[in-house]
Amino acid sequence: MRRHRTTAGILLAVGALLTGGLVTAGGAYAAPRETASGTSPTARTASTAEQHNSRTFWTSERMRGATALDLLLTTKAAKSLKAPRTVGPSTTVEPTAAPAAFPQAGGPWTGGGAVVTTSGRVFFTFQGRTASCTGNAVTSQNASTVITAGHCVKYQGSWHTNWIFVPAYHNGNAPYGQWTASKTLTTPQWQASEDINYDIGAAVVAPLNGQKLTSVVGAQGIQFNGGYNKRMYAFGFPAASPYDGTKLIYCSGNSSKDFLFSQDHSLGCNMTGGSSGGPWFTGFNEANGTGLQVSVNSFGYTFLPNRMFGPYFGNDAKTLYDMAQTS
């Protein structure tokens, strides 16, 4: 496991929440245009040619073949999980039976609703490996903004390439299409030193078939400076054992503030690699699958299993969001 430089080796690596295979990246891409480091968010712009290559690069086989990167470093016992109800473009998202009783330490989301289509799996190329995270579509001026973790757009000094968002992903299928990033962004603190307190990323995705993202899949609200100790729901597509990346998983419970090394939210949750960047909601309504996004899955402590941590959405997160939604 990689360890974060600012916490004396105690943090579980954010990299362990990534998923990756050994598929070699294909296709050429133009050098990124990157803003200067400073107090403003930093961004990478993908050329039209790179966006085209990303669409053709991510086949169903490559998406299904993504393997949790931390599986290359450690082995965990596998468990089997029942598949949740799937949703396609012509399927309504009315709720079915209510999920398990609150709190939930981790299990398939069976409640339906908007979260099924606003959340999705994120795929990209990371240092020659195919990799994945989770993202979520939020309300925005450009109707094209996805929120994820900072390490899901840039990690170990490198911006990820071939970046796409696949809402309602299910076992290699993209029922609402593959949305290619025209721009990826992160906070200046993550850009400068990968400060875990600011592990927040965003992407602006290009229109698909003449339509913008949130007009197709809907959007969740987003909140900044909302405080701590809230009733929370977290979602993601974990791909490391006991999960396999094929289905939407959720956790729920009463959150708290990290009392150790970060300023982050904390929530009991057993999600694994691949869930990084998945949304945390406050005010979540199980009946319609909507809430206000206030964080993302980010990291865990090696000595504190089955607990997830996510960055506090404060002023810097708001600045990042504003830059993304007006791009």
Rank of each mutant, 00 (worst) to 15 (best):
25 A>L: 09
25 A>S: 12
25 A>R: 10
25 A>I: 09
26 G>M: 08
27 G>T: 06
27 G>M: 07
28 A>Y: 08
30 A>E: 15
31 A>Q: 13
32 P>N: 14
33 R>Y: 09
34 E>P: 08
34 E>G: 07
36 A>F: 05
36 A>G: 06
36 A>Y: 03
36 A>W: 03
37 S>G: 13
37 S>T: 10
37 S>P: 11
38 G>F: 05
38 G>R: 05
38 G>I: 03
39 T>K: 07
40 S>C: 02
40 S>W: 02
40 S>I: 01
41 P>Q: 09
41 P>S: 08
41 P>E: 09
42 T>Q: 15
42 T>L: 15
42 T>M: 14
44 R>F: 12
44 R>Q: 13
45 T>N: 10
45 T>S: 13
46 A>M: 14
46 A>T: 10
47 S>H: 06
48 T>Q: 08
49 A>Y: 02
50 E>V: 01
50 E>R: 00
52 H>Q: 10
54 S>R: 00
55 R>M: 02
56 T>N: 08
56 T>R: 04
56 T>V: 06
56 T>G: 04
57 F>K: 00
57 F>Y: 15
57 F>G: 01
58 W>V: 04
59 T>A: 02
60 S>T: 14
60 S>P: 06
60 S>N: 07
61 E>L: 09
61 E>C: 00
64 R>F: 01
65 G>A: 15
66 A>L: 14
66 A>C: 11
66 A>M: 13
66 A>R: 07
68 A>C: 12
68 A>P: 09
69 L>Y: 07
71 L>N: 10
71 L>D: 13
71 L>G: 11
72 L>F: 14
73 L>Y: 04
73 L>D: 00
73 L>K: 00
75 T>M: 00
75 T>E: 01
76 K>P: 00
76 K>G: 06
77 A>W: 01
77 A>Q: 05
78 A>D: 10
78 A>T: 03
78 A>L: 02
79 K>E: 14
80 S>R: 14
80 S>D: 10
80 S>G: 06
81 L>P: 04
82 K>M: 12
82 K>L: 15
82 K>Y: 14
